[in-house]
């Protein structure tokens, strides 16, 4: 895929945010907050970083793979998959509806191109990503495996089982990103279950940790992912702490857990869309 300029990529971010809001609004259900905060990450990954093939093959041999462990960000993932050619953009209008391939949480059952594992029950994606990375190592396949997790998701014990495994086996073809927005469904993570010093935790588990402090600055996100890539192949798994703001891009949604799992009403949608330019054409 031809690399696009920063302004072009920024246009995709704006369109992704519009897609997310329109999708959750249409069915009055879903999770707008976190995908709004991860728009730059999704676009940087799919339009700049991944060596991938929208001509979908489940086994992903020879290409970089991405797993969304925090499956409730599905609206954002579906938008970026559609916008990068995995399936028709028009299909976004079926999100969360009966007989759709775009299930509430990502699933393989309906054979939506781009999805390799179901996610939604939290804490499982890192294990799956590491397993796939292990298969790549067995096949001498040098491509990389990416995974995104929520910060609240790190409260699940399985994440730390996987963290231990990855360091023990030197899974240096894995780049895990944590959406470090400090929010979860019941409130701020520090009030619900404080994650404390995440950087130190991951380092203590044997990971190479980088911090992307400006997780909603596209250039910074790309630079962070470039840095992460440069650290692969050196014997350690890589953890990218991505500081984002939940709800970023819409002034009344930003920085609060209130939009974690609540859709906008008609009026709120109109107000939000005024702030986000339609750049690539709504679905």
């Amino acid at each position: 895929m031809k690399k696009q300029s920063l302004p072009e990529l920024q246009k995709i971010c704006s369109q992704l945010r519009r897609d997310v809001l329109r999708m959750v609004h249409a069915v009055q259900s879903g999770h707008p907050g976190a995908p709004l905060g991860c728009a730059e990450f999704f676009v940087a990954l799919y339009f700049d970083q991944l060596h991938h093939n929208p001509n979908f093959q489940m086994n992903g041999k020879g290409e970089d793979l991405f797993f969304l462990s925090n499956g409730h960000l599905s609206a954002g993932w579906y938008s970026v998959l559609a916008r990068s050619g995995y399936f028709p953009v028009a299909e976004l209008k079926t999100f969360r509806k009966l007989n759709s391939r775009l299930q509430g949480h990502p699933a393989t059952h309906e054979h939506l191109p781009g999805i390799r594992i179901a996610s939604g029950s939290l804490g499982q994606g890192l294990s799956v990503a590491i397993g796939t990375a292990q298969a790549k190592k067995l096949d001498q396949d040098k491509s990389l495996v990416y995974v995104l997790m929520g910060d609240g998701e790190l409260q699940e014990g399985q994440v730390w089982e996987a963290a231990m495994y990855a360091a023990h086996y030197g899974m240096d073809n894995v780049i895990a990103t944590v959406d470090y927005n400090g929010q979860q469904i019941d409130g701020p993570t520090e009030k619900i279950m404080d994650l404390m010093n995440l950087k130190a935790k991951w380092e203590a588990f044997g990971w190479e940790v980088i911090e992307t402090k400006e997780g909603n600055d596209l250039a910074a996100v790309i630079a962070g992912l470039e840095k992460a890539k440069s650290l692969t192949g050196k014997g350690k798994p890589i953890l990218n702490l991505l500081y984002t703001e939940m709800g970023y891009g819409v002034d009344f949604m930003v920085g609060t857990h209130k939009w974690h799992g609540s859709p906008p009403n008609d009026e709120q949608l109109a107000l939000a869309l005024e702030q986000l330019e339609e750049t690539l054409g709504d679905y």
Partner: peptide, 28 residues
């Protein structure tokens, strides 16, 4: 030995790893 993975006492991770290996074409 290169096709065998001791996971430690961490069964949840083991199942996830196996799922990941399977989608990568292995038969775990």
């Amino acid at each position: 030995p290169e096709r065998f993975f001791q996971t430690g006492i961490a069964e949840a991770n083991m199942i996830g790893l196996a799922a990941g290996m399977a989608l990568g074409g292995k038969i775990p």
